[in-house]
Amino acid sequence: MDSVSASQTTSSALQVQLIAAIARRTQGNEDRQTAVPNLSFFRREQGTEPCACMVEPSVVLVVQGAKQMLVGDQSYPYDASHFLLNSVDLPASSQVLDASVEQPCLGLVLRLDLRIMAELIAQGGLAAPQNKGHHHGMALGTITPELHAAFGRLLSLLDEPEHIAILSPLIQREIHYRLLMSDQAARLWQTLATGSYSQRIARAIDWLKSHYTEPLRIDELAARIQMSPSSLHHHFRQLTAMSPLQYVKWLRLNEARRLMLNERMDAATAAFRVGYESPSQFSREYGRLFGLPPKRDISQLLQTGT
């Protein structure tokens, strides 16, 4: 057996182990946090329409079935042979493409700690990739047997909970290292580079997430991250597929939707809570994003049990 065939055989065996580990810990259609910090599972038993979500810096594996993530006009379809990598907090839409009761779509999400990657680069003397990364915040990478094996070891800790506290940080550190050795290394280096455009936009995103209820002043935000307003707009859109103002609107409208759905807050109160001064403007922008005015949308969500 040649090295390529051996590698494929190894990956197939590891994938079978991951499928079994996730399948016996999930049921129906659910997202489930695990006892391992930063690690969660998902399971879907039928295809879905695109569903709005905020994607944290993370790596996502589908071990069975297929999904896609939609960001602006970009689509990122992935299956068991590719991982989805996200380097900044990114508004997106997630869609399950291939799933059934007999063969559900199964996968995992590991939230990344970019500080760990920065430490690995600094302490390990890792050489910077020769090719330059793209500016988008999301990308698809090729899963290697080494990455598969590291995730297999991480999931095996769920059968040995007494070892999670000690071994989980070590295995997660290895996964971060394997990603730095993957075909998406250049993208990660670009995000981590101090003073890079990606790193500055990440700082702007962190600020917006904490201050989205306040009026957005582009000049002040640009000065905060030491960029010109035009450069901020350009690089923000490259990374997130939206402008800073669109990003803030997305944060406000999704938080308002959560308040109305989970805390039974009326539309006008939710609008003011997230920073809108005009309920009519809130209703218009809500309808453009979610397809229905607030009251009808929440009523429909409650009826379907979403």
Rank of each mutant, 00 (worst) to 15 (best):
S210D: 11
P244Y: 02
L221N: 07
M181V: 01
M181E: 15
L179G: 00
L239V: 06
F236I: 09
Y197N: 13
S196Y: 00
I218L: 14
T213P: 01
S168W: 11
M242D: 02
R187G: 12
S228N: 08
I201Q: 05
K209N: 14
R252Q: 08
E255T: 15
S196Q: 04
R203T: 13
Q238L: 15
Q172M: 13
I171Q: 02
F236R: 07
A222R: 02
L180C: 11
K209M: 14
R237L: 09
R187M: 10
Q184Y: 08
E174P: 02
Q199R: 13
Q184N: 15
A204S: 08
D183V: 13
L170Y: 04
Y197G: 07
H176W: 07
L170I: 11
Y212C: 04
R224G: 00
E220G: 06
H234G: 00
S168R: 11
F236Y: 08
P215D: 03
S210G: 05
G195M: 07
S168A: 15
I225L: 07
L216H: 01
A193V: 04
R224E: 07
T194F: 04
P229N: 07
E220Q: 14
L253G: 03
R187V: 15
S210M: 11
L216R: 05
Y247Q: 01
E255S: 12
Q184M: 14
D206M: 09
E214Y: 08
L208H: 04
A202K: 14
G195A: 09
S210Y: 00
W207L: 05
E214I: 03
I205D: 01
S243V: 07
R173F: 01
V248W: 01
Q246L: 09
V248I: 06
I175N: 02
R203K: 14
F236C: 08
T240F: 02
Y177P: 01
K209A: 12
I201P: 04
H176E: 06
A223R: 13
S196I: 06
S210N: 10
M181A: 15
W189Y: 06
L239E: 12
I218S: 04
W250T: 11
A185I: 09
Q226E: 15
S228K: 15
L180F: 13
A185V: 11
S196A: 05
S228A: 15
R187W: 03
I225W: 05
K209L: 12
Y177G: 07
Y197T: 10
Q246W: 01
R237I: 10
L221T: 05
S228I: 09
L180S: 10
H234R: 15
T213H: 07
T240V: 06
S198Y: 00
